[in-house]
Design a protein around this nucleic acid. Sequence first.
DNA 1: ACCTGAACACCGTTCAAGT
DNA 2: ACCTGAACACCGTTCAAGT
Lengths: 217, 217
Amino acid sequence: MTTEARIPLSRERVLRAAVGLADEHGLRAVTMRRLAEELGAEAMSLYYHVAKKEDVLDGIVEVVAEEINEAVARVEVSGGWQRAVRQRILTAREVFLRHRWAPALFEARSSTSLAVLRHYDTLVGLMRDGGFSHDQIHHALHALGSRALGFSQELFDPGSDASAEVPPELAAQLPNLVGMLSEIAHDDPDSTLGWCDDQTEFEFGLDLILDGLDRLR
Amino acid sequence: MTTEARIPLSRERVLRAAVGLADEHGLRAVTMRRLAEELGAEAMSLYYHVAKKEDVLDGIVEVVAEEINEAVARVEVSGGWQRAVRQRILTAREVFLRHRWAPALFEARSSTSLAVLRHYDTLVGLMRDGGFSHDQIHHALHALGSRALGFSQELFDPGSDASAEVPPELAAQLPNLVGMLSEIAHDDPDSTLGWCDDQTEFEFGLDLILDGLDRLR
DNA sequence: ACCTGAACACCGTTCAAGT
DNA sequence: ACCTGAACACCGTTCAAGT
């Protein structure tokens, strides 16, 4: 600790510590005071390297996005545009699985980070090579939404054993949903990113969209 | 003001005021103290009607979701499952266009609100009538993601006149993206929900998914 | 039953001051 | 150039006390 405190602060170190803090204790733990403590400094020292807290949040988006770009750059694929795009998106997803707080932060911030833009730039290039028009690609990016980056935030979580827990008078109000959930079981909770977004579901939605796009080409 | 202060507080009134505050000044303005002020009371009085701030946030999600259900209930459609689902989703979207802070809040909270569940229940029913299996419907809801509720948060905002603003050394790093954006112009900024999510793009993505689902049936 | 005042712990941030 | 202490304005929330 005291040895680490010797190392001078820097924007880079601050952001790295913030990512670590979020990984370990969630995004809510990322507080200027807590962050400084982690770095063996005072809260006010951070402001020499970082404009304000928003700057820290933008910064850690950038750090994660760079991690995505590095991972994606290592991917080698042969095959059509669809395989290439699909593989890169699934690789990006692996990074989010290591930073589970990140999807919410990416959604929350408009964050036109350079690293994020570079990721999109790669996708645009791949689709261009695949024979899409700019207009089609633009539509495609919108259709993919956050899936282009490898995650998809879900809006409700039926829970792993949802059908068992639902109180009867509530079940009566939701006959179709309860009927569905009682037939469905999620098998692989470990692969879950966010709520109900497991690997299988993510790939289903992704392929549905990619197949649809390919048909438009 | 003083006349309004006469009306006793209630959970209902607190939530309604919170929605109004968010509509007018954004979600960040929804503070226990500010909310109380709006109601002509002290911040601490709210805690008699509401457990904590999180309860307020859950509550306003519920209020908006009920507004969606009411709007959707008024919709009458004839035709196949696809027309019915599509129409209901686009109607839900209209509610979000009145509460622009709501998408971010819906995404941020896991919020298994009853009203949200009822909306999903309706969709499940429509798709069931359309001949889908429970398993297919479950996949479908995941594929739709937040689109099922009528919005789709975008991850970057190229801006309305993006191509003009990009500094040249940045453009060099993003050749494909800049190429695309220079060809594309968004015409209807007023219909935008969130960043780049305008009506046309929303419908494109929605139809792409619905068409894909119909093919699976 | 319903509302409030004072108080607590915790934020982000400014600013003048230290080395 | 880099870091800090004291201070400010603002949070959410508890708790004992008022009517």
